[in-house]
Design a protein around this nucleic acid. Structure first.
Lengths: 139, 139
DNA sequence: ACTTGACCCTCCAGTGACTGGAAGCCCCAT
DNA sequence: ATGGGGCTTCCAGTCACTGGAGGGTCAAGT
C-alpha cells in the first residue's frame, strides 16, 4: 500500500502519516522506488492513533498507548491511569470554557449590537479592577 | 513605570508584555537607558488585553477589540459580532470536549485498572471499523 | 570604589501537532 | 513525448507565548 491508500483507509492526511513516521510512531517499509510501503499492521496502528488522537490524547500519550497495546505483559492500570489523567484535563478545560461562555453570553446579551458606540462588552474589558466586574450568571 | 511594575499591576508576565510590543499591540515609550517606560494608558491597555485573552479571544481579535475600544465612531454591532463568533467557537469546542469526555468516561469505567493486561480502553482504540465501536452513554 | 543582586535589554530557539508549499522524481496512459 | 497524478524531501509557518543565553543598568550596602 502506498501512502495515498493508507490515507484514504485511515482517514489521516498523508502529511500527518509522514509526520508520524518522522517522530517515530510508525516505521513503514520502503519500496525500491523510495515510496513508503505500508502493511496491514501499519494501517491498523494508524487507525489506532487516529482514534486516540480523536479522543484528545497527546502524541506522547499515543506513543505510550501504542507501546502498551503491543505489550502483552501490560497492566490495565497503566492504561487506565493515562486515560483518567487525560479525562481530568478535559474536564478542567471544559470548566474553563464554560466559565468563558458564561461571561461571554452575559456580555453578548447585554450589548445592543446596533450602530451606536456604547458597548457593555468593551466596558467590561476596560474595567480597571477585577473585583469591579459585574457578577456573571450561568449561561 | 518599568516593565516589572506593569507586569505586577497587569498580571501579565514581562515576557508577554515584550511580546505584545513586538507584534504591535502596545507602543511603550523608552527611557534614556533603553528601558521601556509605561504610562497609565499603557497599563490600562494591557489590562484590557489580559481580560480579553482570559476570555479566550485570539490576539487578532484583541487587536480589533482594542481598535474598536479606541474608536469613538465604532458601532457596537462590530464588537458584538466578534464576541458572538467567539462564543460560537467556544460552544463548538465545549461540545467536542464533552463528546470526548463521554467516551473516555465510559471507557475508564469499563477498565478494571488492575495488574491484568485485558483493557477495554485499548480494545476500543483498536476497533477496526468506526461503526463497530460500542454506543457511548452520556457521562 | 567596589560588589552584589535585582532589574532590564535583545536575540534565538522551542513548544504541539500538524499544514502548506516548493522543487523534483516515478509511473502510467495517451 | 507529454500530461497528470502520486510520491519524495526539506523548509517555513501556525498560535501565543516561554526559556535561556549573554550582557547592560541601577541602587544599596560595605
Amino acid at each position: 500500500m502506498n501512502i495515498g491508500d493508507v490515507a484514504r483507509r485511515s482517514g489521516l492526511p498523508a502529511k500527518t502519516i509522514r509526520y508520524y513516521e518522522d517522530i517515530g510512531l510508525i516505521r513503514p517499509q520502503r519500496s525500491e522506488n523510495g515510496y513508503r510501503s505500508f502493511r496491514e499492521q501499519d494501517l491498523h496502528k494508524l487507525a489506532f492513533l487516529g482514534r486516540a488522537r480523536a479522543l484528545g490524547f497527546t502524541i506522547e500519550d499515543c506513543r505510550t498507548l501504542v507501546a502498551l497495546y503491543e505489550d502483552e505483559g501490560r497492566e490495565s492500570a497503566q492504561v487506565k491511569h493515562i486515560a483518567m489523567e487525560h479525562l481530568r484535563q478535559i474536564e478542567d478545560k471544559i470548566a474553563q470554557l464554560q466559565s468563558m461562555r458564561s461571561t461571554l453570553n452575559t456580555l453578548v446579551h447585554a450589548c445592543a449590537g446596533d450602530n451606536r458606540p456604547d458597548c457593555p462588552i468593551l466596558e467590561d474589558l476596560a474595567q480597571t479592577s477585577p473585583e469591579a466586574r459585574s457578577a456573571e450568571k450561568q449561561s
